[in-house]
């Protein structure tokens, strides 16, 4: 089935079996293996990408559902030659061990910071009418869809805070 998605700024025409998930289209059809397949059931967050700027689990979505959408994967966030400041913060804070969850963590964090900028609430938001402050509790709650089996969570929180503080 034919579908066209824009990936990291480039329009890509696909002809895929309707069963193909967005994740498999990215990894297997387009060769963008930065997005990882952890559980393939939306439980681990390793496959997190940005669709029209919003973070989703690419394993729980079909490629054909994204005709015309703009997808950003870790390959579009930064490159080896030109790291994104959040990637640099992950290096500086030692925010990974094996690195398998890292592309999903970084895409998720970028989506999360946009959600905070738009004042979307979380279950840690006490005052639903107020301006959200990215406390550690807010940050941890908002990143709960991304699992790190090396348990680098303290460093991941530090890296995101470091980047968010610099960006603010």
């Amino acid at each position: 089935m034919r579908t066209t998605i824009t990936v990291n700024g480039e329009a890509r025409a696909l002809d895929v079996d309707p069963r193909t998930t967005l994740l498999d289209a990215l990894r297997e059809t387009l060769g963008l293996t930065g997005s990882k397949k952890g559980c393939d059931h939306g439980q681990c967050g390793a496959c997190t990408v940005l669709v029209n700027g919003v973070r989703i689990n690419s394993c729980l979505s079909l490629a054909v559902m994204h005709d015309g959408d703009e997808i950003t994967t870790i390959e579009g966030v930064g490159t080896v030659e030109k790291l994104h400041p959040l990637q640099t913060a992950f290096l500086t804070e030692d925010a990974f061990q094996c690195g398998y969850c890292t592309p999903g963590q970084i895409c998720s964090a970028l989506g999360m910071l946009q959600e905070v900028a738009e004042n979307w609430p979380s279950q840690e938001t006490v005052d639903l009418a107020g301006k959200i402050t990215l406390t550690d509790d807010e940050l941890r709650e908002r990143m709960s869809g991304n699992i790190c089996r090396c348990s680098a969570y303290p460093q991941i929180v530090a890296a995101i805070k470091s980047y968010a503080g610099d960006a603010a």
């Binding site: 967050g45 973070r55 989703i56 729980l60 989506g111 609430p121 979380s122 938001t125 639903l128 869809g145």
Partner: peptide, 23 residues
């Protein structure tokens, strides 16, 4: 919803992950 039906906002953000709720 947040100001008049806070129970609904609280219930939604208690479910799933942010990635799931976005979809």
């Amino acid at each position: 919803v947040r100001s008049h039906y806070p129970v609904l906002t609280q219930a939604i953000v208690a479910g799933g992950s942010a990635q799931l709720r976005n979809k």
